[in-house]
Amino acid sequence: MSLTRKDVEGIAHLARLEISEAQLPVYVESLSKILSFVEQLNAAQTTGVEPMAHPLAGEAQRLRPDEVTEQDQHVKYQANAVSVAAGLYVVPKVIE
């Protein structure tokens, strides 16, 4: 798979990554190489094979009792935020 500049711009946008003009061609090349490399998977015979999302097949999700175990710690948690006002995380205006 050979990606175009436009493809990479599209992916970068979907992933919300700013890529500089200078870096774009580098990514076009390396991502194309990686995709070509992984395409050898197409050769594998996988008809009828279930996709494996977890290494421990057969394990089931455990359930937690419905209990409130947390207390308000927003001051501590917000110490890592750059912009906070009145307990809210502040971002540039959200347009719906």
Binding site: R64, T69, H74, A86, G87
Partner: peptide
């Protein structure tokens, strides 16, 4: 209408002060 959230032990009550019911 659970007491706690679907994936955490935070309370689900309506109208609490901002981010007071948001855990890690």
């Amino acid at each position: 209408a659970t007491r706690s959230k679907i994936f955490s032990g935070s309370a689900t009550e309506y109208g609490a002060s901002p981010n007071s019911q948001a855990n890690l």
